[in-house]
């Protein structure tokens, strides 16, 4: 593992495999909170925070509690009392979804309480989308990619989660900027509001697909 490798992970998560525009994860807040730049920045920060911490914590839980490997902590504890146990008896990988959701939900709760205390206006403007980060598929998606699909190391997972959050925030802010301009544009009545936002999202997605030509 070197810095170059981490850079590649970061750039790929921000631009090439942007979670919103290339993987199509987390579209609900992408369209819901992208009306004003201020609240989209706040939402982006909350998602970055949750994503980074969730990546780190879920990686630890997956590697040290769920996988049937010798360093599994539950296995070690049981092994102290009964030496006949083997790591294979502690294959809890099937619990991964519920365990990850538990972690993410707790983190979102934590963020919610902190934001409510620190910045009530931001809390108001995020509204229902703040607790909905819990079910934001981008976050569960990053956790699954880190552990099962790609199997990153701890540092790689954390960097991947952080840069996925950055990519989400960039997409959200770009979208909010465009939608603020769209408010003043002469949109045909039938396309006003969400329809034109979906069209914009599609065009942005096309534009981001251009990054897939980046190679290292």
């Amino acid at each position: 593992m070197n810095i170059g490798n981490l850079m590649i992970i970061a750039i790929s998560a921000i631009l090439i495999n942007n979670f919103v525009l290339s993987r199509f994860l987390g579209l609900c807040p992408f369209l819901g909170v992208s009306k004003k730049i201020d609240s989209s920045i706040g939402m982006g920060m909350a998602v970055i925070f949750v994503l980074t911490l969730a990546s780190a914590v879920t990686w630890i839980i997956y590697e040290y509690f769920l996988l049937p490997v010798p360093q599994n902590i539950i296995y070690r504890i049981f092994h102290l009392f009964n030496t006949s146990t083997t790591p294979e008896m502690f294959d809890l990988a099937y619990l991964e979804t519920i365990a990850f959701i538990l972690v993410i939900a707790s983190l979102v709760q934590l963020v919610e309480m902190v934001i409510q205390r620190v910045s009530p206006p931001l809390y108001e403007s995020l509204g229902i989308f703040l607790p909905l980060i819990t079910t934001n598929c981008a976050i569960l998606g990053v956790a699954e990619l880190n552990t099962i699909t790609i199997h990153y190391s701890f540092i790689e997972s954390t960097v991947h989660g952080f840069s996925a959050g950055i990519g989400f925030t960039i997409a959200l802010i770009l979208m909010a900027g465009i939608r603020e301009k769209l408010e003043l544009a002469d949109v045909p009545p039938a396309f006003k509001g969400l329809p034109i936002a979906f069209i914009v999202a599609g065009l942005m997605s096309l534009a981001f697909l251009g990054f897939s030509g980046l190679s290292f």
Binding site: I61, F65, L66, I74, F78, T85, M89, F90, D91, L92, L95, I98, A99, L102, V103, S106
Partner: peptide, 18 residues
């Protein structure tokens, strides 16, 4: 079965801790 017990223990402890 120890696998079942460990699942209970793990999720229970996680919930308690969080």
């Amino acid at each position: 079965d120890i696998t079942v017990v460990s699942a209970f223990v793990l999720l229970g402890l996680m919930g308690l801790l969080f």
